[in-house]
Simulated scan of single mutants.
Amino acid sequence: MAAFSTVDDVRERLAATGYLAGESIATTAFLADRLEKPLLVEGPAGVGKTELAKAVAVATGAELVRLQCYEGLDEARALYEWNYKKQLLRIQASRDDSAWDQVHDDVFGEDFLLDRPLLAAIRRAEPTVLLIDEVDKADLEMEGLLLEVLSDFQVSIPELGTITAVRRPFVVLTSNASRELSEALKRRCLYLHMDYPTPQREREIVLARVPQAAERLAEQVVRTVTALRGLELRKAPSIAETIDWARTLVALDRDELDSETVRGTLGVVLKNVADQERAVEALSLG
C-alpha cells in the first residue's frame, strides 16, 4: 500500500518532520514509494541523504531499520546468522544419539535464527524503511548479496528455504560516491543525486530546524558556510553542522556572526586543524 498520495503530499509530510525537500527529492521519493523500487541517493557527505530516510520513516510512521555498511561487512552481519551458543546448548541437552535427525532440524529452525537488518526488514509485516547507509563502503561481494534482496525482496536460507517479504519496505541506499557501484545494483534502483542546497534553501532549513535563530543570523551563518565550502577543505561543512552552528550561536545569545564569534565557534563546523587555519586565512579572521 502506497504511503504517499501525491508529490505534494511527500513534500508537506517531510516538511512536517523538519526535512525541506525540493521538487526532485519529493518526486523521486514519491516514485520510489509508488513503484516499490529501492531509491539510491548519491552525493557528497553531509547533504541530507541519511536524513531523507529518517524523515520518510517519521512521516509515514514506519520503523527505521538501518544497515551501516563498511569494508568487510559480510552476510552474518547484514543478513542473518545462527545462534551458535544456543545451538550448542541444544545439542548438549540431547543425550539420545538416535534423535540426532530431530536435533539437527531443531537447531536449524526459527528459534535459532538471528535476524540482521536485511532479513529483519524483509520479515516485518508493519511499515518499514530500510536504510542501507554508505553502500559504497561495502565490498563488491556485499553488492551481490543485495541484488537478491532488492530484485525480489526475498532471502534464501538453505536450511529454511526462501523467505519473501510480506510487505515490501521503503528502501533507501546512500552513497558518497567513493567508488562506482555496479550497474546491476543501479538497475534495480531509482537514482537521485543530492548536492548541497542553494543558500536560500539552506537558510530555510536553518530557520525550520532552529526557529529561535533570527533571520539575519541564519543568513550570515549560511553565507559563511557557503564560503567555507568553496575552499579546498578536507571536509566541507555538512547541513547538519550548519544547523549545529546556528544552535550554538543561539545558545550563546548571539544575534550576529562577527569575526570574533566565527573564530570562537569555528570548531562546530570544521573538525580539522588545517581546515580551520585555511578558513581563518581565507575569511581574514586573523
Rank of each mutant, 00 (worst) to 15 (best):
L131R: 02
V135H: 08
A125P: 04
R223C: 07
S178L: 10
L249K: 11
E141P: 06
A138R: 08
D152N: 14
L207S: 05
C189M: 05
Q154S: 15
L146D: 13
E148Y: 04
F153I: 02
S151E: 12
L228G: 09
T226K: 05
I132D: 05
S156V: 06
E180L: 12
V250G: 09
M194S: 11
E126K: 06
Y191M: 14
T162P: 05
T226W: 14
T162M: 02
Q154K: 15
A246V: 02
Q212Y: 12
A214D: 14
I163C: 10
V172G: 01
K186S: 07
S238F: 03
L207F: 11
V250N: 07
D136E: 07
E241W: 07
Q154W: 10
Q212L: 11
V172L: 09
T128Y: 08
E202D: 14
D195I: 04
G144R: 14
A121Y: 03
R179T: 12
S156Q: 10
S178Y: 08
E183G: 15
T226D: 12
A208N: 13
R179V: 03
L160Y: 07
L228D: 00
D139Q: 08
I205N: 13
L140D: 14
L217A: 15
T128P: 01
R167I: 09
K137V: 04
T164W: 09
C189Y: 13
V225G: 06
G144C: 06
L146K: 05
V155M: 00
E202W: 11
R216N: 14
L192R: 13
V222C: 11
P211T: 10
P117M: 08
D244S: 06
N176K: 07
L249N: 11
L118S: 00
V166T: 12
M142D: 10
I239M: 03
E148I: 03
L118F: 00
I122L: 04
S151K: 02
E241S: 06
F170G: 02
T162Y: 00
